[in-house]
């Protein structure tokens, strides 16, 4: 049984590798705030379909800035961001550190938001809403208000809202940083499961070495002042990753490598 599972893991891990296609690339991006706050310097990154990329680095190294650039909320000082696929409305979605739900709207109406902004009525997308809520395990909470939910559940709604348009790429800025560890582990597992089901690309910002190793296949380690990429690590472990992966020796080895890289990043500007 063990070997069978292992084989299955390998197979599913290999599938996305074959289907790799570029989604988006950042070419030598600089971003300067004001006159002299260099938030990013010479950042390049190729994002492939199906990637789970973590941006890992100390506070102030420009992780959020990179996400905001990709989301087109701010524009690079120099360098370019190129979409390799067609950028339709809803092709990109964002999850923030806070759930950022509309407190006056029910869970279902919150998830409806991306479609609503495209001018779609609720009835026309009610199946998509139901599907997204089912994916995050909140199928019984359509009519609840955000205040009635726990922190973890609110975050799930936020994720459902991001998933509902079937985006090509999801940007997540420390989405679980404010949650307790048990909830965070659970959501980590669920996030991987979700990703394998819908096969999207994720760019995930985190402060946590453990989270980045558990979730991603690529870890981009960044340093601050000026914000830049100093190393890219590959976590060539197959998906789906189960809870056992957290205690495996491979996991520990990857964590050590990521910690070392992070220490280098911290020391470089110290």
């Amino acid at each position: 049984m063990n070997t069978a599972t292992k084989a299955a893991l390998d197979a599913s891990g290999a599938a996305p590798l074959g289907a790799r296609a570029p989604v988006l690339s950042l070419n030598n991006i600089d971003k300067v705030f004001g006159r002299d706050v260099v938030a990013l310097k010479g950042m390049s990154l190729d994002i492939q379909a199906g990637d789970f990329i973590s941006l890992l680095g100390p506070s102030g190294c420009g992780k959020s800035t990179a996400l905001r650039l990709i989301a087109d909320l701010i524009h690079p000082t120099s360098g370019s961001i190129r979409w390799q696929v067609e950028k339709t409305p809803g092709a990109l979605s964002v999850v923030f550190q806070e759930p950022s739900l509309m407190p006056w709207a029910t869970v279902a109406d919150n998830v409806w938001l991306p479609f609503r902004l495209q001018g779609k009525t609720r009835t026309s997308v009610k199946d998509d809403i139901a599907e997204a809520l089912e994916l995050v395990g909140l199928e019984n909470f359509h009519n609840a208000y955000p205040r009635e939910l726990s922190g973890g559940m609110k975050m799930r709604v936020s994720i459902a809202r991001a998933l509902v348009t079937h985006p090509r790429i999801i940007l997540m800025d420390e989405p679980f940083a404010a949650l307790d560890e048990i909830t965070r582990f659970k959501l980590n597992n669920d996030l991987l499961e979700l990703k394998s089901k819908i096969g999207c690309t994720v760019v995930f910002v985190t402060h946590s070495v453990f989270e980045s190793v558990f979730l991603s296949d690529r870890i981009v380690v960044m340093a601050a002042r000026p914000g830049r990429v100093i190393r890219e690590l590959h976590v060539n472990e197959p998906y789906p990753r189960s809870e056992e992966f957290r205690t495996s020796s491979e996991y520990v080895a990857h964590c050590r490598a990521a910690s070392d890289a992070l220490r280098d990043a911290m020391e470089e500007h110290a």
Partner: peptide, 29 residues
Amino acid sequence: ADHNLRDLFKVYGSSRWQRLRFLQLPSAL
């Protein structure tokens, strides 16, 4: 209005009117 939500509205390409109607007016209530 929550500034993350404002960013989200921008990401989804909302119009000025949509931002007013669906975000700012309810926040102001």
